[in-house]
Write a protein that binds this DNA or RNA. Sequence first.
RNA 1: GGCGCGAUGGCGGAGAGGCUACGCAGCGGCCUGCAAAGCCGUGUACGCCGGUUCGAGUCCGGCUCGCGCCUCCA
Length: 448
Amino acid sequence: MTLSIHNTLHRTKEVFDPISADHVRMYVCGPTVYDYAHIGNARPVVIFDVLARLLRHLYPKVTYVRNITDIDDKINAASRESGEDIRAITERTAKVFQDDMAALGALPPDIEPRCTDHVTQMITMTEQLISSGNAYEADGHVMFHVPSMAEYGQLSRHSRDELIAGARIDVAPYKKDPADFVLWKPSDDLTPGWESPWGRGRPGWHIECSAMAQTYLGDEFDIHGGGQDLIFPHHENELAQSRCANHTNGMARYWMHNGYLMAEGEKMSKSLGNFYTVHDLLDEFPGEAIRLVLLQTHYRQPLDFTKEGIAEARRTLDKWYRFNDGNQSASDAIPDGIISALSDDLNTPKAIAELHRLTADPSEESKAAFLAGAQFLGLMQQELDDWFRWSPAGATEIDEAVVDALIAERTEARLGKNFARSDEIRDELAAQGIVLEDSVDGTTWKRG
RNA sequence: GGCGCGAUGGCGGAGAGGCUACGCAGCGGCCUGCAAAGCCGUGUACGCCGGUUCGAGUCCGGCUCGCGCCUCCA
């Protein structure tokens, strides 16, 4: 099976040709842990989780690195505002992030490095950039000198002149060139800092990824991923730093970026009330339904995320859980249709259509294939009862014994043709969000 | 202003120069005491204007609308 992926570097779909077929290496930019992840942050996590699963299926060894950024001025600002210790904020937020992503069915990456553990590597890389003539120290800062790299802008396709023309902020006086960006900056006594050859300070906001990727994946690796909004400046600057420090022609062979996400037809913003954190959504919907919404749209397409969309995805999963009534086990082989769809630049909507196609055939063979395919995509992970009896956070507890007693009473009433009482019981339960289903085998219930 | 992305049937969403996408919802039917679930059947589409072609959602040009990014982040 040939894997092809869209490479942002060339803006075309290309056949994936790893540096070493024995060991595929991928780096994805992870969260800055100062606040709960919103659904836009979850999109790359789920997308690259699918890619990691696919790579592991196609290649013998895969190393997937996704960092946690725990040094950032937004974190410092959050700490100043709330008074909470920086370490406490980052630990707490990182834990919630990991739990929330697990609830979305995303497997943990192989390595999840933190910036605070890699400051030494960042300092080393910064020193390398100074000695190679690509960076300079000025006024306590170390700056990357953009004109020192001829190919700067190759990823985002911004020319240096355009950047300067479009700049929205004043140029700091210590910059040699308006396009230069920071590698290291000084910290005052109230700000976290590390000792360095340039005094006590902290890293700029791109060098972390360059340093951590180099540490775990080497000077050059296969895939670098993230959201489209990271193309510039983050990835452009990472690319420049890594190439110049490591003396390579590229950092990653393939750069992949997922499209942006809107919520309820508008850009997500707190003031519009459509700002969804994954943590809050998980109180309201099962994680698998959220995952399915994310996979139903191709990763490079814009996605309008709506609660109605999650509800619809949940109904689709209801249907799938019914189709696979809990008695099947997944076949060993992942259906070809799933693998070939995913191998075509991660065409998850097409893979999902393939799942729908398999549900049209009620044979045991098809059910086993369906289950294998769905589970490969990180879906159909629940027990049947857990899925149908899932309830939102804060919902009233259901006393199953009471429900069973009412069902028994209703069955009696139906046998006695007392349909008035029978329907009354059904309505009563429906009011509590319980839906009854009669079949030849008796009556079962689920949460509606 | 610069760079880039998107526009498909009521909704979601693939595909791609000639061939059914698919799902949801709707409608008709079967089943059911009635429902629910399930099953069968069924309608509707490619933003606008030109062009290329025997033939264009699919290629080219222009336009309209929506959106992203434009550095030490907000």
